[in-house]
Simulated scan of single mutants.
Amino acid sequence: MGHIKLANIGKAFGAVKVLHDINLEIEDGELVVFVGPSGCGKSTLLRMIAGLDKPTSGDLSIDGKVVNTVPAADRGLAMVFQSYALYPHMSVRQNLAFGLENTRMPKTEILERIAEAARMLEIEPYLDRRPGQLSGGQRQRVAIGRAIVRRPVAFLLDEPLSNLDAELRGSTRAEISALHARLGATMIYVTHDQVEAMTLADRIVVLRAGRIEQVGTPLELYNNPANRFVAGFIGSPHMNFLDGEVASIAGERAVATLAGGHKLEVPGDPRMTIGMRITIGVRPQHVKLGDGAGSLPATIRLVEALGAETVVHTDVTGHKMLVVAQGQHKLTPGSEIQLSLAGAPLHLFDEKGLRLGLAV
């Protein structure tokens, strides 16, 4: 079992409130990722689930039991830290065994659990080495192995890959995903990297300033962001935004006037009124180079040739707009081009940043 429920959870340090009325249920076996910018409260929330911090208000339940006052050691959870937190004077085998020995578990069972975890994480050759003799990726696998041998109710991972280089981060991310599939255990994973969130999560919890902005599957958040913040945070590169004003409305369609007087057809919404200020979002992958319906004049500022794709930084009436074009293109900074939004899913937001209509 690994069902975790947070009901009206709040946290304050003195007069400073860092979490506000957090309501969330994590189902048994889910891999849920907390994501958001630095200081949004995601690590504080994880520490409260772990029992390292106590909530100021609300109830935190594990498998139906309120655990607000239950010590961390008695919650049946295992935490994997960013810093690995391995004992440097102990071998890998001793690091894996240490927590189990403290529970007076029979030695034969300890050895069985270590062997199982080492085989699963492919760290068998390193069992007699000390952490200082291992690479960062190997040390992180040992830290995860130390959590596995405990067979916890749920795994809590606090930015476990942030100390690894890009290539190792990608491979270790895949290992964690495969591990979750094999174990079928509940996992809560904290990261500031939305690419990690998109590739790992069953569901993503997007946090900002101590509040939940949206909860959903990666594709739900990508295709239907609840507000401008989520739209800009989920997706890589981030979504382009253009300011506009509603010029006309005709049923399910409307026309917006952009800076410079350019007209753009957008989805309609019952809440729209003539003259209403809106923000139009479009992902860089959906913008096309060249003329077409809804095309906009742009000035090229920078070209990043990546081989399989070309990232073009442009200026559209004072707004920065990124284009991710497949293949290789001969483009020159400073030159004028047309950008087509024909067929692109457009996301609309009102002046408060809340979503309008549906992407089309």
Rank of each mutant, 00 (worst) to 15 (best):
A342N: 12
D193N: 10
T332Y: 11
T317I: 13
L348I: 12
D350L: 08
K288H: 14
E30R: 07
P71A: 11
F34Y: 07
I249P: 00
D165H: 10
Q338N: 15
G99P: 02
E245F: 08
M79A: 05
G36W: 03
A342L: 09
G232S: 08
I144L: 10
H238G: 13
F13H: 08
G14H: 04
R283D: 05
N68F: 05
G137Q: 07
K352F: 15
A259G: 14
S61F: 15
F98V: 03
A254W: 02
S335H: 14
A15E: 13
R355P: 02
A185S: 13
F241E: 04
G275A: 12
H319V: 06
E304D: 15
I300P: 06
E112A: 13
G29D: 06
R271Q: 14
M1K: 13
I280L: 08
S162F: 03
I280W: 03
R113M: 10
A166G: 10
I62H: 01
G307R: 10
N163R: 10
H319I: 06
L296T: 03
I337K: 02
R139P: 03
P297G: 09
V33K: 01
V32F: 02
R129N: 12
A209Y: 14
L6S: 04
L46K: 01
L127I: 12
